[in-house]
Computed example of a mutant assay.
Amino acid sequence: MQHAKPTLTQVSAALTHEVEVVNELGERYLLSIPSERALTVYVDKRELITLMTLGARPEWLVTGYLLNQRLVAGVEDIASVTVDWEVGAAAVKTRGGIVDLAQKTARRVVTTGCGQGSVFGDMMDGVDQLALPDTRITQSELYSIVNAIRLQQSVYKSAGSVHGCALFRGEEMLLFVEDVGRHNAIDTIAGWMALNDQHSAGKVLYTTGRLTSEMVIKAAQMGIAIVVSRSGMTQMGHAVAQKLGLCAIGRATNRRFLCFSGAEHLLLQPELAASPVRVAA
């Protein structure tokens, strides 16, 4: 049975902004920096939270945020997401309201994400009930993912100061998202997956940021069993990954990586570590 999809606006904003800078030699020139704008989310006319974002895909971001916070069970619970950048607001209309919204949002946790992500306390509950698919990744596929990210055109390359997340199926990149915080980028991917009926089996999530408990829990709630990062991992993120059996791979650059947990998902090919790095056009 096909579930009803929400009606979405399409109001992406400029991702960079030019400013004048002065360098150590006294030279003045224009430099591109990432845009950052506040987006206040209203659910059924009630203010929920203000997200700081680049604004590339705000409707996907809001949808994924509601899903990852477990405020809605699925996209079929959302009737519409309307974003208006003139007032910096996203108005969400649900089909039947959110039961106990005040109770669910009463306890807020400020996370370690760049841009100070925040999650509601209930998100931390029920982790033990999450079941992940038996997804596997070969060392060769891991190297291809790292190389694909290296070649990806991005705001980071032109302006810096942002984080990126990408969704892969094998060596194929399905989606690449950047935002001021990695928590926004992963929520945007969650929204895209739900809106496009993308199943989690066989998918791998890549992030440029460190693997915190928030990132691990959100990945697990999306049903993703393998997460790769070019950065490291926190103690709480490691504890949650171990409990879930999630494969967390960090420090993934060139031919180097560290598998912090869930090594049974990784099919090692150590002979590849000594081979030259493949350079694609």
Rank of each mutant, 00 (worst) to 15 (best):
274 A>S: 15
133 P>T: 08
245 G>Y: 01
159 A>M: 13
262 G>V: 00
103 Q>L: 09
86 E>Y: 11
177 V>S: 01
10 Q>L: 09
159 A>V: 13
18 E>M: 10
92 V>D: 09
39 L>V: 08
144 S>T: 07
87 V>Y: 13
68 N>K: 03
24 E>F: 11
80 S>W: 05
77 D>W: 02
63 T>N: 01
143 Y>N: 03
100 D>P: 00
111 T>I: 11
134 D>R: 13
136 R>F: 11
94 T>L: 14
34 P>R: 04
144 S>Q: 13
26 G>H: 10
14 A>V: 10
143 Y>H: 09
153 Q>V: 14
43 V>S: 02
216 V>P: 00
9 T>M: 09
175 L>I: 10
270 P>M: 10
84 D>R: 10
111 T>E: 09
51 L>Y: 02
204 V>W: 01
199 H>C: 06
213 S>N: 10
279 V>L: 10
163 H>D: 11
171 E>W: 00
159 A>P: 12
260 F>D: 03
153 Q>L: 14
128 D>W: 11
29 Y>C: 10
26 G>T: 09
72 V>M: 09
113 G>S: 15
101 L>P: 00
102 A>W: 07
144 S>M: 01
164 G>K: 04
113 G>V: 02
116 Q>N: 12
190 A>I: 01
256 R>M: 13
114 C>P: 02
93 K>C: 14
127 V>R: 06
205 L>F: 04
122 D>Q: 12
122 D>M: 06
151 L>P: 05
145 I>Y: 05
73 A>M: 10
138 T>R: 08
32 S>D: 15
275 S>F: 09
22 V>C: 15
42 Y>P: 07
29 Y>I: 08
240 V>F: 12
70 R>N: 14
7 T>P: 00
244 L>N: 04
187 D>R: 00
229 S>V: 06
18 E>H: 09
32 S>T: 11
